[in-house]
């Protein structure tokens, strides 16, 4: 029952070439920097994992986190709503050179597609994007006189997530707005790997306060003083 792992390297060791990888965070809030950098380190050392599809709201910023993955060349495609940032060089250069794919998804649709996958719902209808270029090719249906676009669930092989507290069963809390997509991604991925500032014994998180129940979590790593991506970017850090 103990889901703890002892190092970032061990936590990301099972991620395979070609995987669909959901990464928690919105901008720098909630970005699991240590897990991402362990994955980049593994790629630099071994050439694997590569050809990844990465799902995140954004497409990296500066020279750390997802931007470092893109810089390293291990990302084949981004699925996101807003691939711009204060320093979007990593994605922009590869996108304009046609070296990386992009599936642009409205933010609420992105969240709901992830949630739907976690809830076992293969498709749903939403008015979002109806009549726009992002709805091209998608089925449209009318309900009660209004037009809706069919959207499919978005499943992943692995999610890597930053939490505030975790217990050894994988129950999670988050910090402030760092929650964002993470609870949904834990539900939608086959394997959810979590770094938490503190890992505690079962019972130490009040059940009333659990945000992500442990059933959605597979591995928990304690990272006591986690790097904050926005702070890294503002201080000009590079992986």
């Amino acid at each position: 029952m103990d889901k703890t792992v002892s190092s970032p390297e061990q936590a990301v060791a099972g991620i395979e070439n070609g995987a669909v990888l959901m990464i928690g965070g919105f901008g720098g809030s909630g970005a699991p920097v240590e897990l991402i950098h362990a994955l980049v380190g593994r790629y630099v050392a071994t050439g694997s994992p590569t050809d990844l599809t990465v799902v995140n709201n954004n497409a990296g910023n500066g020279r750390v986190g997802i931007a470092a993955m893109i810089d390293a060349g291990m990302v084949a495609k981004m699925v996101c709503s807003f691939p711009r940032s204060s320093d979007p060089r990593a994605f922009t250069e590869k996108y304009l050179a046609d070296e990386i794919g992009l599936e642009l998804v409205p933010q609420g649709t992105l969240a709901e597609r992830i949630r739907a996958a976690g809830a076992g719902i293969p498709a749903f209808y939403t008015p979002t994007s109806y009549g726009t270029e992002l709805a091209e090719g998608k089925p449209v249906a009318e309900f009660d006189g209004k037009k809706y676009v069919q959207e499919r669930w978005l499943q992943a092989d692995v999610a890597i997530i930053k939490a505030e507290l975790a217990d050894t069963h994988g129950n999670l809390t988050y910090r402030h707005a760092a929650r964002n997509f993470s609870p949904l991604m834990c539900m939608a991925a086959g394997v959810s790997i979590v770094q938490a500032r503190k890992v505690v014994a079962p019972g130490e998180i009040d059940p009333e306060h659990v945000v992500t129940p442990g059933i959605f979590v597979d591995a928990v790593l304690e990272v006591p003083k986690p790097l904050q991506e926005e702070e890294l970017i503002r201080s000009g850090e590079a992986y």
């Binding site: 919105f26 901008g27 720098g28 809030s29 909630g30 709201n57 940032s85 204060s86 933010q107 609420g108 992105l110 969240a111 709901e112 992830i114 949630r115 988050y174 910090r175 402030h176 707005a177 760092a178 929650r179 964002n180 997509f181 993470s182 609870p183 949904l184 945000v211 904050q228 991506e229 926005e230 702070e231």
Partner: peptide, 26 residues
Amino acid sequence: WDLINAGKKAITLKPGASFFHHADSF
């Protein structure tokens, strides 16, 4: 920087504020 708005700008909270995940937000 864990407390930002959709424009990635730092914010503060007012009494009565709440946090929720993205599917609830949308």
